[in-house]
Amino acid sequence: MKIIILIKQVPAVHEIRINRTLGTVQREGFDAMINPDDEHALELGLSLKEKFGGEVYAVSMGPPQAEGALRECLAMGVDYAVLLSHHRFAMSDTLQTTFVLERAIRKLEPFDIVITGSKTLDSGTGHIPVQLSEALAIPLISQIYKMEIKNGFFIGERTYGHEYQSIKVKLPIIIRVDRGFNEVRFIPLLGIKQAFEKKIEIWNFDTFECPDEIDGCEKSPTKLLEVIDEKIIRKNVEIIGTNDEKAQKILDFIKKVHIQKIKSPLDLE
């Protein structure tokens, strides 16, 4: 079985800084890590390999330093790592990213399963798996909580709104996993030793003869206009009295906040 896992390097949680001029996440000089959702994709890919055999590829698009994240994938047990890196890929929005990923995945054909996380920590659109499914014209399977692979089919169960669905789909497919799906293994020391003896493939604009439509800077239809910090102001209030008095005070407070809301300029009244 050939499994392709898409991963992204993101800034370590405590290190996120926004470049206000470009409206992008600043990556230079900060600690980085594998996007947490993608670790669950890696875990699924590796456990499928352990069960069914085959090869696991980790593919990432990003600047040269994203090699670090791929190195960790290799340490976890991935067989091959491919970095998609070129200045024409920089500043790509999710559509441009999809175009590049699609080409990279096609270059790895025939494959059985592509696995992605649900969203990235630093941009969080969740577009990629959906768009890739469309671009590659293969089904996207998401929200699964149970699965197996049998005779070239994916057989599994997933939540779907208020329902549980049992589904059977012919491979190849894209699987999108969430954080709760599995427990991610720790990186073994032997894996770290071996990861630095493996080669990371670098594919650029010319590797798969990209058409002119690929140009992250110039041809991304999504333009980020502004990035604002989310500010939550919390205040501690002490509520003293009997239980009835406390309840009344809380009720008064809720009413007061509610009244303020009605008076907001957005409200029709």
Partner: peptide, 19 residues
């Protein structure tokens, strides 16, 4: 080295979560 850094982050994560 990059390898030594990965050793640190990986073992730190293991230690915090398991130990």
């Amino acid at each position: 080295t990059e390898q030594q850094k990965v050793v640190r982050t990986s073992v730190r994560k293991f230690a915090e979560e398991v130990l």
